[in-house]
C-alpha cells in the first residue's frame, strides 16, 4: 500500500500539476511509494484524516491543531517566506471605501478555506460585523467568489491573497481591494503522520536540500514555492496557539 500524500484543497489550480510532480520526485528520492490524493473540499479531506487515510499532508494552519494533537502528526517543514494572507474585495464600482463603513446585513461571499474565512471575519470586527449580523454564502472556489461580486450578488468577498492575484487581469480590473491582511505568521505546513515516523528525518533532510538541487528547484517552482524551511515542534505548537486566539 502506498503512503498517501494530500494537499490542502485551497492550493491554486495552476499548481495542481506541480503537486503531482512533487509526488513523483518524492518517490524517486525516498524509494517509497506515494499516492497523491486531492480532495474537492476541506470537509472531504477531514473525513479522510479522521479515517487515517492520509500520511503526508500540506495542511491549512486551521487543521494543524487537529492533525498534531488528535492524530499524532509531526511538522516536517513550512514553505519558505510564504504566509497565508487574506484580501477583502468588492466590486470596482461599489460605494465602499473602507471596512468601518460596512453595515449590518452585509452580503459576504467566501469559500470553505478555513484560515482565510477566519482572517476575513476578524478584519470585519472593527465594523461590529460578525456571523450573526451578516449574510454569508459559501462558494466552491475563489473564481466563483469573484463571479458573485461581478454580478452584484454580494457586497464583499474573502480571497486567499495568492488566489486573488491568480485571477485574470480582466476580473481583477472589475474588483477593488478593500483590505489585505499583513499577519505574516499564518502559513501552511507539511505534516507527516505516525506511519511515516521512521522516515521523518530522511524526509526533512530531502526537503531542506530541495531548493539547492536543480531538479528539486524546478519541482518547487511548479508548486509555486521557493523552498522549505524547518518547522520545529515548538513553531507548530506556537502556530496552533495563535490560531486558537483568532
Amino acid at each position: 500500500m502506498p503512503y498517501v500524500l494530500s494537499v490542502s484543497p485551497d492550493f491554486t489550480p495552476k499548481h495542481i500539476a506541480g503537486w503531482y510532480v512533487f509526488n513523483t520526485w518524492l518517490q524517486r528520492q525516498t524509494e517509497l511509494a506515494f499516492h497523491l490524493e486531492l480532495y474537492d473540499s476541506f470537509s472531504q479531506q477531514r473525513e479522510a484524516i479522521a479515517e487515517d487515510k492520509i500520511d503526508l499532508i500540506y495542511a491549512n494552519p486551521y487543521d494543524a491543531a487537529m492533525l498534531v494533537r488528535e492524530k499524532g502528526f509531526v511538522a516536517l517543514a513550512a514553505p519558505l517566506s510564504k504566509a497565508d494572507e487574506t484580501i477583502i474585495a468588492c466590486h470596482q464600482q461599489a460605494p465602499i471605501e473602507n471596512i468601518e463603513a460596512l453595515q449590518q446585513g452585509l452580503k459576504i461571499v467566501t469559500t470553505d478555506d478555513p484560515d482565510v474565512h477566519l482572517m476575513g471575519m476578524m478584519m470585519l470586527e472593527p465594523a461590529d460585523l460578525n456571523a450573526n449580523n451578516t449574510d454569508i454564502q459559501q462558494m466552491d472556489s475563489y473564481v466563483l467568489v469573484a463571479k458573485q461580486l461581478l454580478q452584484h450578488n454580494a457586497d464583499i468577498g474573502f480571497f486567499l491573497k495568492d488566489a486573488y492575484y491568480d485571477l485574470s487581469h480582466l476580473i481583477r480590473n472589475e474588483l477593488k481591494v478593500l483590505m489585505t491582511s499583513e499577519i505574516f505568521i499564518i502559513r501552511h505546513i507539511l505534516l507527516a503522520g505516525p506511519k511515516l515516523q521512521p522516515y521523518h528525518q530522511q524526509l526533512q533532510s530531502l526537503l531542506m536540500n530541495m531548493q539547492h538541487d536543480s531538479k528539486g528547484a524546478d519541482v518547487l517552482k511548479a508548486m509555486g514555492l521557493t523552498g522549505w524551511e524547518q518547522q520545529t515542534q515548538e513553531d507548530t505548537e506556537f502556530m496552533i496557539d495563535l490560531m486558537d486566539t483568532l
Binding site: 468601518e100 476578524m122 478584519m123 470586527e125 472593527p126 465594523a127 461590529d128 506556537f238 496557539d241 495563535l242 486566539t245 483568532l246
Partner: peptide
C-alpha cells in the same frame, strides 16, 4: 501568548 487586533470603536 497575547494576540491583539483592531477593536470596534463602538
Amino acid at each position: 501568548t497575547s494576540v491583539r487586533r483592531k477593536p470596534s470603536r463602538k
